[in-house]
Design a protein around this nucleic acid. Structure first.
Length: 553
DNA sequence: ACGTTATGTAACC
DNA sequence: TGGTTACCCTAACG
């Protein structure tokens, strides 16, 4: 039996024990395994005779719907084969296992000959725990994160409200929040490659691309998609132009993408884009033309990777920028390859060191990995089934590379669907191996009960920052977190142990809404279901008469 | 306390 | 084709 399966079955056993005590009294399981409802309220699919939703910390899929995770029919998320398989259904890349012998040696020689870093050991399994947190740093949910290139303790974050926060992770209570750089959602924060950290690039739903001074917040506009500062509807149809994503190329060119599928190429020395390009556009009934992601190649200054909600990621060659585009052409002239997906793509990134691999996050619940840029016009080398489908009110999930992993294998991605961790439904932050599809670590903390869609691995330190609604959490490997090669399920690293460890250890946190001094966690709400409350789970909601999301009368 | 609102997406009719 | 409804969602505002 595989490790993953062991862990999975174990979690189920715990569920069964706890749900028999705290399960909803109105639900009972029938022979299909699905709970049946005694009341006649429809559940999810509109049909009667069953219910879907949380019972305690465990979620039951609607039996009439396909699996929430992989999208196939015939099973539920709980029994999804992609979830149970250690590699999530992937075949590992050749040479990804050091015991591969000859293959490993050939790969080492090949990559070494090309001047790339020699492959090291596979990503290490570690136990991570929260070290510090800043609560309610932002006015609205966190959208983007960026580490300061010089000061290792500083992390910048942008919010849906537009605010940009500069937070000192070490001091915890020290932060600056800029409220007037962007007027609406700050969609990206990027330091130029080799930046000294004085100036940072940003773009916003207020349609601007700016560079601002990290110390003072003084901002210079590189481009505005509207004639004036954003203050309301812009287009004839009442919509407006929002800058969705941005990156700074190796050569210092700032590239931003908007909700009309346009790319804007900006020179930091000028106040307007020097070139534009229609990169994404598809559909007649509904226009799918939003740019979701923009990324420059870390090695080749001419290579750009964009992703859109038109189900395509595009590999672009900027040397063709000046060329004339045929009127009505659907494919940008500069396109080298089009990476087709079956749903909206949230992000597409080159691997951080060699720039040879590509990682995409799609709303079809799959992370796709291409091992070589030059075969990106073919099927991906790996599709990792991972829950990164999202609904409204959440920042889209974006799987990101570990910038310090010389093997370019470790990636981080938040998880949408929850899992029962010792009676608590939590949404872990996942570390995965892009070469095998294996889950390397799942980061959970009992105080982190909501979803963390924004996560970033530090370029130098063993540190991860997670953005969770308005707050930021800093993870580090546990002090006693020695390398666990054969993880199995032992008393020392079981999930329930991890939870109690985190709860007992305590960490420094700072409530930016209320306090002026940091606190050491004394007693922090655990988020666990209240056992003295007649089995009422915190996840359970009172019955509602009005249908969810229904408009008022 | 609770209802409403907030520019998503896609399946389904 | 256009309208309607639902989603393992969050949190602020009245």
């Amino acid at each position: 039996m595989s490790r993953r399966e062991l862990q999975f079955l174990d979690a189920q056993d715990e569920d069964d024990a706890s749900s028999s005590q705290s399960g909803s009294p109105s639900a009972s399981e029938d022979e299909t395994g699905y709970p049946s409802s005694d009341d006649d309220s429809p559940a999810v699919c509109g049909k009667k005779g069953h219910c879907a939703g949380f019972i305690g910390a465990r979620y039951f899929d609607c039996p009439n719907k396909p699996c929430y995770l992989c999208g196939q029919s015939g099973h539920s998320t709980m029994t999804c084969p992609f979830r149970i398989d250690p590699g999530h259904g992937c075949s590992a890349a050749p040479g990804s296992n050091p015991t591969d012998g000859v293959q490993w040696e050939v790969l080492r020689r090949e990559q070494g000959a090309a001047g790339a870093a020699a492959p090291g050991l596979p990503p290490q399994r570690k136990r991570w725990q929260v070290e510090s947190a800043v609560l309610r740093l932002h006015d609205r949910r966190v959208v983007c994160l960026e580490f300061h290139p010089r000061n290792q303790n500083i992390v910048l974050s942008g919010s849906k409200g537009g605010r940009i926060a500069v937070w000192d992770m070490e001091k915890v209570y020290e932060r600056t929040v800029y409220r007037s750089i962007n007027f609406w959602l700050t969609s990206a924060l990027k330091f130029a490659p080799g930046s000294d950290g004085l100036a940072c690039a940003t773009c916003s739903y207020d349609s601007t691309v700016k560079i601002f001074d990290v110390e003072t917040g003084a901002a210079t506009t590189l481009h505005t998609a509207t004639p004036r500062e954003w203050r309301g509807p812009v287009e004839e149809d009442g919509s407006w132009i929002t800058q969705m994503a941005m990156d700074v190329m190796q050569g210092g060119i700032v590239v931003a993408g908007d909700n009309k599928g346009m790319l804007y190429f900006c020179d930091p020395r000028h106040s307007s884009a020097f070139a534009t390009m229609q990169a994404h556009k598809k559909g007649t009934k509904v226009q799918l033309e939003r740019v979701q992601s923009v990324a420059g190649n870390p090695v080749d200054a001419n290579l750009l990777l964009t992703a859109g909600n038109d189900y395509a990621a595009r590999l672009l060659d900027l040397r063709v920028l000046g060329g004339k585009q045929e009127a009505g052409a659907e494919v940008p002239r500069a396109e080298l390859a089009s990476l087709q997906h079956s749903k909206v793509i949230n992000a597409a990134y080159f691997s951080p060191i060699t720039g040879r691999k590509i990682l995409t996050t799609s709303q079809d619940n799959r992370l796709r990995v291409w091992d070589y840029v030059y075969t990106s016009d073919q099927e991906p080398d790996r599709m990792i089934v991972h829950s990164n489908n999202f609904n409204r009110y959440l920042t889209p999930f974006r799987a990101e590379w570990d910038p310090k992993d010389l093997t370019e294998r470790l990636i981080v991605c938040g998880r949408y669907i929850s899992e029962d961790f010792g009676g608590v439904a939590l949404h872990p932050v996942d570390l995965l191996d892009a070469s095998t599809g294996e889950l390397v670590s799942e980061l959970v903390d009992p105080n982190l009960t909501t979803i963390s869609p924004v996560n970033k691995l530090h370029p130098n330190q063993e540190l991860i920052v997670s953005g969770n609604s308005r707050s930021l959490f800093v993870w580090r490997p546990a002090p006693d977190g020695e390398l666990v090669r054969d993880i199995g399920l032992t008393a020392s690293n079981s999930i329930s142990d991890q939870l109690s460890l985190a709860a007992a250890a305590g960490y420094t946190f700072f409530d930016a809404d209320e306090s002026e001094t940091p606190k050491k966690k004394a007693k922090f709400a655990t988020g666990a279901p209240k056992t003295d409350d007649a089995g009422e789970s915190t996840k359970k909601k009172p019955p509602r008469k009005r249908k969810k999301d229904e408009e008022g009368p």
